[in-house]
Write a protein that binds this DNA or RNA. Sequence first.
DNA 1: TTGAAAGCGGTACCAT
DNA 2: ATGGTACCGCTTTCAA
Lengths: 337, 337
Amino acid sequence: MSTILDVAEKAKVSIATVSRALNNQPGCSEETRKKVKKIAQELGYEPNEVARSLINKKTNTIGVIIPEISSLLSSEFINGIDAIAKQENSNLIVTYTKSNIVSTEENLRMLHEKRVDGIIFVSEILRKEYYEYIKRNNIPCVLLSTKSAEYASVPYVKVDDYDASYAATNYLIMMGHKKIGLISGSSADPIAGNPRIDGYKKAILENLNMVVEERQIVSGNGFGFDDGRDNFIQLIKQYPDLTAIFCASDEMAIGAISAAYKLGISIPDDVSIMGYDNLKISEMSVPPLTTTAQPLVKMAEKATEILFKIINKKDSDVHSIIMPYQIIERESVKNIK
Amino acid sequence: MSTILDVAEKAKVSIATVSRALNNQPGCSEETRKKVKKIAQELGYEPNEVARSLINKKTNTIGVIIPEISSLLSSEFINGIDAIAKQENSNLIVTYTKSNIVSTEENLRMLHEKRVDGIIFVSEILRKEYYEYIKRNNIPCVLLSTKSAEYASVPYVKVDDYDASYAATNYLIMMGHKKIGLISGSSADPIAGNPRIDGYKKAILENLNMVVEERQIVSGNGFGFDDGRDNFIQLIKQYPDLTAIFCASDEMAIGAISAAYKLGISIPDDVSIMGYDNLKISEMSVPPLTTTAQPLVKMAEKATEILFKIINKKDSDVHSIIMPYQIIERESVKNIK
DNA sequence: TTGAAAGCGGTACCAT
DNA sequence: ATGGTACCGCTTTCAA
């Protein structure tokens, strides 16, 4: 494998000249430039970006820290992040966490040791330890689909879960449903758990004039298919007269539909199901899933754009963004008015 | 951000000693080691892996080149790769290609400039250009879910598509089906296209004693949901008396099921559907999809293990692997015997 | 226009 | 046990 020195020797110029020639920098005659480029080509010379990074203090690599909760959600986010990174001539190092503190801190440290130019932190609470690490090491960072009440200096991009959940529940009410169950994440989860529960409760209270009973809600730990399936069975048992269910994720909604199929319960004729996220699979399901859309790819793109603004010191207009949600009507909710 | 020099100065020792102390290398008193570690801690010193990589000629990073054909397939592969990489203390840089030649070569070049320790090349033909680039630059490389007839020096891990497809079709025959359609990828695709078509044809010929007619097959370009949906409609039109369809990917199978639902065709009562891959969504579908499983995660793990053998010069037992497929019976195929 | 040389932040060899 | 130093491959300043 040839280095800049090999090129210099063969071209009978200094390495400084080779550098200038290859990088199209001024201070180099066109003739020399051509000769150097030709020889570099012949030698199959490829610049060593590691060496470049060391001196430039820029790796053209950004890190992503993302929980493995849902690979379907993750892959949409990563698509968006990757698109913008590519535009900025950067690559991604994606690290998955199991939502446990050690792993996240390890990932943070690894990414920093690799001197990534910045980090996108996805769907996970920004704990004090993380924040301090980021601050101390001065790492550009943006939060995606999570937020940072306490650390206002870290910008975030997300949908307002409380509002979106309120709207989703209201949609079911508008379709004539009065007995509405909820399958949600953990109430201890301050990002995607509690706010969605509260939005649901508020809608029922304000627009149905009812206080939600405990049996109307099953909230597990995760947001996955299995959770949805299990929670559906549980919910049907404890609240058999329901006519509609709002699921706090599409994966859970698909799980619920699957469980319903096994039990011989028809969707949407017997029970209406409403999802949250608008993943690709929500249009692939049978029946196609009515859901509360988050603009997942757009959110990821926005977050990444902000990150590059910080990296490139265009801090001028760096601020958090609340993205709009949208109700997508498909075929899993029945109008029973 | 402090460097090894800062630590050395504050500890009143040389940088050589700091290096030895922090890396737990011999030639350093326990007392000094403790002092250095304490000071490094105080300073919040984090080693710069870029500098390390430069001298060690090892970045602890491996590259993945993968087409975006199906993010569902991709994410299973990436999970497997990531698991082994993590064990080896490496991170992943994943690059997506749109299967066009320029992009793949660009990705290859970028990964090499970043001096990744090796590359996993997924689901894509290893063209002559790629192979030569890899050889010329001496990049450790393993192929995953694709192969390299011409370049035997590049090991691969895959399922035998021809055999698997033959077995899948035979399964339908064993279930009593005689009029079996095929929804496949392009016959010009020598990896996942043609072999699966041929396996299907062979099964029909040998075990049904029939020559496949043209109208029994619809082969598009991709393997996605939309392809499956569109091709199902087309196939039903040109071969209305079929009783079963073998789809060359799960995503296409789900697309077919979805189209059937819209047309009021019942799966599996009117038409049986068989998939290929065994993605996560195949158990999430309604009805759950009977399919031809590839051990996706295992395959990715194997490929990555081989890659690290090459990287670590344990070339002793590096060879390609054909992984076993398996028929997974769920509920989308009806026994009509 | 060109070259010499000083780093970037580490590792490892060779003295001491 | 410790320190001095060459070096990894490149960029950039300063002189020539």
